[in-house]
């Protein structure tokens, strides 16, 4: 393995960061352990559970399947950036709370980053659409029903807004 360090300059939730990292450093580890943004969770590190989902130039991706160096020159959004500066929850965060859509909360960040992107594309989703979109994120606690309710509720509260 070469000891070469690579420069990563990226914007995370609107803030610029620049760090020198190992080529093999995972993006999930970069966010969590280098930048200290531990809201993004890691459940499997092989791309199945979806807990590590972030938005990469606006699209949901699994940060455990990417290297930190791939973030160079790109925009990242994580769960820490979802609520307003004044602490107002995003409508989906609020809806998850209102419907009891989380229990241990470990899958929640990934679900938020997947489903806020989904809602932006599908402002008036049906339940089958929601379940399909959610099916790439594993939750071991809730049985998904309250999460599906939350997405429906958030969509209606957002009134077709993106």
């Amino acid at each position: 393995m070469s000891d070469e360090r690579h420069r990563v300059a990226t914007t995370v939730n609107g803030t610029r960061h620049q760090r020198d990292v190992d080529g093999r450093l995972l993006l999930s580890d970069f966010l969590r352990h280098v930048l200290g943004l531990t809201g993004t969770r890691v459940g499997c590190e092989h791309g199945v559970c979806g807990a590590c989902t972030i938005q990469y130039d606006g699209l949901p991706v699994r940060s455990c399947l990417m290297l930190a160096v791939q973030a160079d020159g790109h925009e990242i959004a994580t769960v820490e950036g979802l609520a307003g500066k004044d602490g107002t929850l995003h409508p989906l965060q609020q809806a998850l709370r209102d419907t009891h859509g989380l229990q241990c909360g470990f899958c929640t960040a990934g679900i938020l980053m997947t489903m806020t992107a989904f809602l932006a594309e599908h402002p008036k989703p049906t339940e089958p659409d929601i379940r399909e979109a959610l099916s790439g994120n594993l939750c071991r606690c809730t049985g998904y029903q309250h999460i599906v309710e939350a997405v429906t509720l958030a969509a209606s509260r957002m009134g077709g807004r993106r």
Binding site: T38, V79, G105
Partner: peptide, 23 residues
């Protein structure tokens, strides 16, 4: 009563501390 949870705000915003977050 179906009270929504006190712990959710921390979990939803990514502030809750899990073991791997200890640095």
């Amino acid at each position: 009563a179906p009270i929504t949870r006190n712990e959710d705000a921390r979990l939803l915003t990514g502030r809750a501390l899990f073991v791997d977050d200890v640095n």
